[in-house]
Nucleic acid binder design. Sequence first.
DNA 1: TTGAAAGCGTTACCAA
DNA 2: TTGGTAACGCTTTCAA
Lengths: 345, 345
Amino acid sequence: MTKNPKQPTMIDVAHLAGVSPMTVSRALKPNTSVSEATRSKIRAAADELGYVLDSTAAGLSSRRTGFIAVTIPSINNANFADTLRGLTQVLRATNMQVLLGYTDYDVAEEERLVEQFLRRRPEAIIVTGHAHTDRCRRMLEKCGVPVIEMWDLPENPIGQVVGFSNAQAAKLMVDHFVGQGYRKIGFIGGDPSRDTRGQDRRQGFLAALEAHGLDTSRMIAAQRPPITMREGAHSMRLMLEKWPDIEALMCVSDLSAFGAMTECQRQGLRIPDDIAIGGFGAYDLAEQALPPITTIDVSSENIGRIAAQVIQNLLSSEATKTSETIHRIEPKLLARDSSLRHTER
Amino acid sequence: MTKNPKQPTMIDVAHLAGVSPMTVSRALKPNTSVSEATRSKIRAAADELGYVLDSTAAGLSSRRTGFIAVTIPSINNANFADTLRGLTQVLRATNMQVLLGYTDYDVAEEERLVEQFLRRRPEAIIVTGHAHTDRCRRMLEKCGVPVIEMWDLPENPIGQVVGFSNAQAAKLMVDHFVGQGYRKIGFIGGDPSRDTRGQDRRQGFLAALEAHGLDTSRMIAAQRPPITMREGAHSMRLMLEKWPDIEALMCVSDLSAFGAMTECQRQGLRIPDDIAIGGFGAYDLAEQALPPITTIDVSSENIGRIAAQVIQNLLSSEATKTSETIHRIEPKLLARDSSLRHTER
DNA sequence: TTGAAAGCGTTACCAA
DNA sequence: TTGGTAACGCTTTCAA
């Protein structure tokens, strides 16, 4: 590793190229009025010195850091990964960089992250869900940059929203189960203190059962998220012990649904003949499992893409700024063998 | 959203608290000599104004940005997610922030990311693997901060290394298969142009087969990574068409192994009686699948933790800086039902 | 198209 | 323990 006691600055490049630093600054960005001759001379000088622009200084001076701060509950989650992918894809064109943090489904950790991130002076901030500590909410409200809450439909949004109704998503599954003729229907997952989206699904699930006049007792609350396959299997064991008559089961995510399904299979139960299974999130796993698992698709990647577009819109100087504040996604049910009656296949 | 035409600065806080900006700067960091009275006065003033430190300015002035740049091939990958978790956990104590980018297994994209990241003046940079474009390698070599290559054992390391031998990992699986009495052994995955780690596993696999004097023809190259479950299933179909006599199969990752296994099951083959399956990566899925899938554990989280410790060490002013450059992890085989002969269970 | 001067908000350094 | 001064490396702004 060559020891570089000091990285070259714009001034060094300017000296070598025989121009002023200001011209270097311009020459290094596109769409600036610099003659081709000067520009290539400067490029050569920069290359020779191994010059690398210092965005820290640039950001301080221009008050545009190029950061979009994003917090998600978990990095090891295909849904949020998809959202992030959609986000970065759209953002790439804008030269914006994502500053990513994960909260582990903990609002206190979210607060810590948001505080750290705001120091970086991001040009917008995206958080997952509507649950925040009071202090975090206050910080977001007066941070002076666009705030997006995603993956949820908050009752009192801080700024923009790109999300869907988790309750409605769960209702889709209940309606599907009922349409397939199942009546003794259960749910696994949904921790009120941490996974508010899971909890919303649980509540929507209950409400939908009630709307159909069905028994609502077959509920197993999960451990703290992330709800793993293993916990799905564990909860399934409890469920079968307590309500062996259960006909159909929704899990808070496809991962726990897979765990629940394999537990059933281990116990010799057939899916869906003995028990129907539904998940959430449209994971690859749900499609690839044997049998494929019925799930709900909320187009995670699209959430990210839309969020990025909202930001682009808000940051573009053109005063086209949409007044729209809620960008609502419609969850879709993907009916698969794990819940389809033989006669309907 | 309250319109804040201008965020308050340290000077505003200093005025309100009746001290100098310098004292504010000190009061806001721990372990600085400021009297308790002054400190709390300043804290109150900062709170009242809703002051948020500007790390951009702080970084410019102190030349310490608090960023550790990290590139991984994919965000939607439990292994790299675990590495990242280990990394951030250790780094949290240091007040370092991870600047994360994913390359999609593309060295050109890695180059783009590294260039972007170096502008942020990170205090260290961590990349995955040894394959870089020439330009990227040059940038890393002369960036002036510690460089770590992880998840691999490069022949010509740029700086520090925290990794393991992918070839050796594959050899573990071959030896296991052979020990179980399998002889007609195949491999799925390993794209030389992109997934060099997968390719290394493939090569190690071949070498191990040869060492045992076994036939090395049963190889199916995968599509470009990430190798999904679906591609595992697809490759399995090809494999069974071409070599229906195959007795044991290793896949480049647990995901493709799961896809391959479900494809076998769909075709009525029993695991491991008709065909044994092995994966890589110790995903939850491998443990939870039916039957559980034999895999290789490289302790992904540990890779991240060690990388973070190496960085802490390198950045600490104490000249304890370890001369050690290669931090080698030992892959471990987790033998499970998907490859264990009945008699050995 | 190019340049000079004046910050951007913070911290290093030295002095009190 | 506190404060004054001078950067840090760039961009904004205005002028040539």
